[in-house]
Computed example of a mutant assay.
Amino acid sequence: MENDSVPQEITTLVGREVYTNNGVFLGEIEDLRLELDTQQVTGLALHELNHELFAEEAASARGVIVPFRWVQSVGDVVIVNDLAERVQQAKQNEEEEVRA
Rank of each mutant, 00 (worst) to 15 (best):
E2Y: 15
E2I: 13
E2W: 15
N3D: 14
N3W: 13
S5C: 11
V6R: 10
P7M: 08
P7W: 06
E9I: 09
I10Q: 12
T11G: 10
T12M: 11
L13C: 08
V14E: 08
G15Y: 01
R16S: 06
R16Q: 08
T20Y: 04
F25D: 02
F25H: 09
F25A: 01
L26Y: 10
G27E: 07
E30Q: 14
D31T: 04
L32D: 15
L34Y: 06
L34G: 01
E35N: 09
L36N: 07
D37Q: 05
Q39N: 11
V41R: 00
V41W: 00
T42G: 05
G43A: 10
G43C: 04
G43R: 10
L44I: 01
L44M: 08
H47E: 14
H47K: 14
E48F: 04
L49N: 09
N50C: 03
H51G: 07
H51I: 05
H51D: 08
L53G: 09
A55D: 13
E56A: 07
E56F: 09
E56R: 02
E56M: 02
E57G: 03
A59H: 14
S60V: 15
S60G: 09
A61C: 12
R62S: 15
G63P: 08
V66Q: 04
V66W: 05
P67E: 08
F68P: 00
W70Q: 01
Q72L: 13
Q72V: 10
G75Q: 05
D76A: 12
D76L: 06
V78R: 03
I79S: 04
V80S: 03
V80Y: 07
A84P: 02
V87E: 15
A90D: 13
N93D: 15
E94V: 11
E96L: 15
E97Y: 07
V98H: 00
V98P: 00
V98C: 00
R99Y: 08
A100C: 01
A100K: 10
